[in-house]
Design a protein around this nucleic acid. Structure first.
Length: 484
RNA sequence: GGGGCUGUGGGCCAGCUUGGUAAGCUUUCAGGUUUGGGACCUGACGACCCCGGUUCAAAUCCGGGCAGCCCCA
């Protein structure tokens, strides 16, 4: 290993070895520390935690805007709650972490998700149509004993998410909530964080345990694998019947509420932000979620140190006054080393201030994604806010392009196989996403090494012809890819 | 779930075949010198994943465990 490679920078290229790149960038940019000694659990370090905090905030602001209120539920759920909804208990029991301490005959679980905690309380809180709609969310960590290989942030056994649990008087209202949820994923994850997704209605055999249907946002990672991001579920009345969540309508008639739930996984979303935007020099944080939006690097020597630092402080205050997150790196390291560190951390803009800048009353501005340096007049510093928006727009456009040309229509099994091998997505005629298609899906998993991710949620695509797998009449067009 | 590989100072790793004083680079700390793209000099701190077995003697061989990575399902 050469001297250069021993330094703190990355020594693999994202394109050549994504797995290794991902692990390195997580640790070297100090997002997480992977040395914690429980499988599937990682320590999130300050840089990562600050990013996650901002992501939570943006998401929660949007939830509140859409009429949700926050709530905080206990981490423990008694076994009897799980058992109330039969498919839920079947789906989640294998993944539950059970506690050794029990409550009478009741085993206690670390929540893998909180439907069964929320809804017994909803039964107490909801009496009348006046109590509806009820839209609550919580910020929570949840625990799932995933039996697949774990990957930091991508597939962890603890993750940090938001879960929203909503109740309505009618199915129609519940269905429009599902649409609102997809819209929220678009507004926050795509428009703000720059992560492009396909809204996929999952096949019947792959829906959330206890739901009528599930719509997920599938994000394509640089290695050609899908990662499931926020999903929204139409729970219908399955849970409300199980937990006896009833209301009286205007005419005094009693009915079970219609429910939905929505789960944006923030830690997992961070995995996508890192993977989608990052490059061979490290992270590239979107301006709107970077804990430091502008890093100021003073360039000084013994003689002019005080003068330069004082000037840097002035600039810092000025940028702060525009409502931006900024910091001065006044340490004794040489400028070059500071440049590398902050580029590794993905800070969008760097301002350099030294003797030269002082003389000419301008600053040198480096932009992380384009790696360009330009001069900016001190009096024009307020422009940085606008530059930040342009920065995020560029990231988004670049990320959107990634999926272009990746969706391949496949008419034969061999072509599906080749498409998957080429890290692309197969779009195929498929017999059916209800029970009858499951055998074909199993074939695809076993023989072709990929998963049926579902049908497009918001675009009715008509299939013509035969199912590529079994040859029966195709009812649907489905998307097939590898998944995490 | 199946297979493969790996585990040595904070980080990257050599040593393991053939058992016998654990090497190097980097980081960190102290001092000096320096500061416009990963500087240099001097000195110091710091390690064999865990449990058991074989042996006069185990980083090394054997068994088990734990953790990580990769491939497959």
């Amino acid at each position: 290993m050469s001297k250069k490679q021993n330094k703190e920078g990355l020594n693999v290229k994202k394109q050549e070895n994504f797995s290794e790149w991902y692990t390195q960038v997580l640790e070297k940019a100090e997002v997480v520390d992977l040395r914690y000694n429980v499988k599937g659990f990682e320590v999130i370090r300050p840089w990562g935690a600050m990013i996650i905090e901002i992501m939570f905030k943006l998401y929660e602001e949007e939830l509140k805007k859409q009429g949700h209120k926050p709530v905080i539920f206990p981490t423990l759920i008694p076994e009897e709650n799980f058992k109330k909804e039969s498919s839920h208990v079947k789906g989640f029991t294998p993944e539950v972490f059970w506690l050794q301490k029990t409550q009478g005959d009741n085993k206690l679980a670390l929540r893998p998700t909180s439907e069964t905690a929320f809804y017994q309380m909803y039964a107490l809180w909801i009496r009348s149509h006046r109590d509806l709609p009820l839209k609550l969310y919580q910020r929570a960590n949840i625990f799932r004993y995933d039996t697949k290989a774990t990957r930091p942030l991508i597939r962890a056994r603890e993750f940090h998410w938001i879960e929203a649990h909503n109740c309505f008087a009618t199915k129609k209202q519940a269905e429009s909530q599902v649409q609102e949820d997809i819209g929220m994923t678009e507004t926050i994850m795509h428009q703000k964080f720059g992560i492009y997704f396909l809204a996929m209605k999952r096949p019947k055999w792959d829906k959330f345990a206890g739901a009528e249907y599930t719509i997920c946002s599938d994000v394509l990672m640089p290695d050609g694998k899908f990662i499931q991001q926020p999903s929204t579920h139409l729970l219908g009345q399955h849970f409300s019947k199980a937990f006896n969540v009833k209301f009286k309508d205007e005419s005094g008639k009693e009915d079970y509420v219609w429910q939905t739930c929505y789960g944006p996984g923030i830690s997992r979303m961070l995995a996508s932000v890192i993977s989608v935007h990052g490059d061979d020099d490290g992270l590239i944080m979107p301006f709107c979620i970077s804990p430091v939006q502008v890093i100021i690097i003073p360039i000084f020597n013994k003689e002019n140190k005080n003068k330069i630092l004082k000037e840097a402080e002035k600039i810092n205050e000025k940028i702060k006054s525009f409502g931006l997150k900024t910091e001065i790196d006044a340490g004794e390291k040489r400028p070059g080393e500071k440049y590398h560190e902050w580029e590794l951390k993905g800070v969008p803009f760097r301002l350099e201030i030294g003797e030269r800048e002082l003389k000419e009353k301008k600053l040198t501005l480096f932009t992380r994604d384009t790696k360009t340096k330009e001069n900016i007049q001190i009096k024009n510093l307020s422009e940085i806010k606008k530059l930040g928006q342009e920065f995020d727009e560029r990231l988004k456009i670049k990320a959107d392009k990634f999926i272009k040309g990746k969706i391949i229509n496949c008419e034969t099994k061999q072509k599906i196989k080749d498409t998957i091998k080429n890290k692309k997505i197969a779009r195929i005629n498929f017999c059916s996403v209800d029970r009858h298609g499951e055998k074909c899906a199993e074939f695809i998993e076993k023989e072709l090494g990929a998963e049926v991710r579902g049908v497009l949620a918001n675009k009715r695509e008509k299939a013509k012809g035969k199912c590529v797998i079994c040859g029966k009449t195709a009812k649907e067009i489905v998307y097939v890819g590898r998944g995490y």
